[in-house]
Amino acid sequence: MAEERWSIGDLASASGVTLRTLYYYDEIGLVSASERTGAGHRRYTAADVQRLYRVRALTQLGLSLDEVATVLRSGAENLTALRDLLAAQLADLDVKARRINEVRQRVLGLVELLDGETMPEPERFLGTLEVTAQLHGHLSEQHWDALAARRAELGDDTVDALRAEWVTIVTELRRHLVNGTPARDSAVRELAGRWQRVAEAFRTGQPDLDERIQAAGEVVWRQHGARISEYVSDRAGWSAPGEMADIVDYVQRAMKS
């Protein structure tokens, strides 16, 4: 029996690839019909169909068409080129996954804020979004990737524990502040040390990056300290949104004493 042939329409229906895509693949030489009829119509052989499915499999892994072409040109026996491309793709996916997780955490925090016992005023909520945008504007993708990588290294459980520890520290500092405990008091200084250790846990280990991140945080605090205080107060259920600024000043005085 003669080997089966597929028209471009039949191949599109069977493979789920659009006609437009098949024409484009043909145009760039990625998947072309090996035969033509007397009237010039494309006819795809079994080998052409196999190549199409290999192209689909590789693109579904996130490889670009140029990278797919490189793999196919290198030959099926040369898996080194494919391995290198997949390793690079895996690294890129890791970065994207960390970025997605960063966005997820921010969205989760905002949802938790809206689900709290006291719904924030619209202006205060939008102010929180504004602060987030400002902070991101002061850092490059490289900085955010480094921070995300550090959080991924720590793991979700450790990050959650550190955040819980920070909330405990801030709550204790607030209590001392309200009670009039001097910043030089040993208990306050111990809390300030714990505050600093929590912050250090999130450092990337790259001094230049860490300095840039810290500087950006200080700029945002100077510009939007009131907004940040409102956000923390909303999350903690405090009645006075300005208290966070007082606590930060309290910690800084304790560290210097």
Rank of each mutant, 00 (worst) to 15 (best):
W238L: 03
L90A: 15
R212A: 15
A161T: 03
R235S: 10
P182E: 12
H138Y: 07
D48N: 05
A81N: 09
Q134M: 13
V198H: 01
M255A: 12
R227S: 15
S186V: 14
I8K: 09
R124S: 14
A201K: 05
G16H: 02
L11W: 03
N101Q: 12
H176F: 10
L22P: 00
L209Y: 08
L22C: 00
H143V: 01
R124M: 13
G193Y: 06
M244D: 04
R36Y: 02
K96C: 03
D156L: 12
A245L: 15
S233W: 01
E165A: 15
D115L: 06
I8H: 09
D115H: 14
A87K: 14
R98G: 05
D185Q: 11
W144P: 03
A47G: 01
E130W: 12
Q89I: 07
T37Q: 10
G137K: 10
E4S: 08
R235E: 11
R253Y: 02
Q60L: 10
R36Q: 01
L147R: 10
A226W: 02
E117D: 12
R124K: 14
L114Q: 09
L22R: 05
S74M: 06
S34D: 03
K96T: 08
V232Y: 04
L61K: 03
D234L: 15
R20T: 10
A240E: 15
D115C: 07
A161R: 00
R194S: 11
M244N: 01
A76Y: 04
H136W: 07
T21E: 10
R197E: 13
T128D: 05
L72R: 02
R212C: 05
T118S: 14
V17P: 03
N101V: 05
G29T: 04
